[in-house]
Amino acid sequence: MADPTLQDYKNDVPNAWCPGCGNFGILQVLQKALVTLGLPPERVLLCSGIGQAPKIVHYLNANAFDGLHGRELSSAQAAKLVADDLTVIVHSGDGGAYGEGGNHFLHAMRRNVDVTHVVHDNHIYGLTKGQASPTTDQGQKVAVHPDGVAALPMNPLALAISQSCPFVAQSLSSQGDHLLDILCQAIRHPGFSYVNVLQPCVSWDPIHTYAYYQKHCYRLDASHDPTDQGAALRVALAHDGRIPLGVLYHNDRPALRAITEPGCADLRDCPDRPARLARVFDRFR
């Protein structure tokens, strides 16, 4: 079979994002990453929930499971456990990943199913019109918080590193070359991989603009050792006004499917049920 091309990943579903949205950059890079990795569309499963970011799964040609808000990780992990031959990539917004789905995020890191979780983090709730997300800055004035957000923003990178998440990275929607490299590494990682992709919200957030990120982001260089959990945590907790981009942390914990024997190789087609059950029944005599 011929190698997949960008054309294979294009479809005709009308796009509903705001002009200038950071999601466009992520969509383009995702398509490039899948082509770069030589994956044909039918071997790829994109899972998402609800919000602006999750619509991404409709805007390219691949298998798609667009489920419930914040629950995309749950469905994705199960799909991967069943269909181990699929490459499973999950797209969430910061609301779905860290708010509605926070508990699932924690347990996905523990469980370590080989899926890639891409969080489109624009620090705001876009589709519900500009309320605070779990990563909105303290004091920022947004819908429902006219006096400024009182709560502290979550630090999802530090959280993930502290939980020994197998792969933790951050990138920026407007730095395509960097995002492409990070996404390819994340998808290749044989276990749960997590990428926080910063992106501006052009409709609801006048502060965190393309220019803002361009000014504050820096790329981790070779002096950072991503296998050093303590060093990774120090980068994530620096609070120096600078935003790190790159692979902060990774480890080689084996993925769940690699260490668990489910009794049949393919859960979609488990043969010999009657014979297997005959043996099982004997246990109840």
């Binding site: 489920g67 469905s75 087609d269």
Partner: peptide, 14 residues
């Protein structure tokens, strides 16, 4: 909540 959404994902996958 995770359980029922896992069931949906697993069924979808076959």
């Amino acid at each position: 909540i995770a359980a029922i959404n896992m069931v949906a994902g697993a069924s979808y996958a076959g």
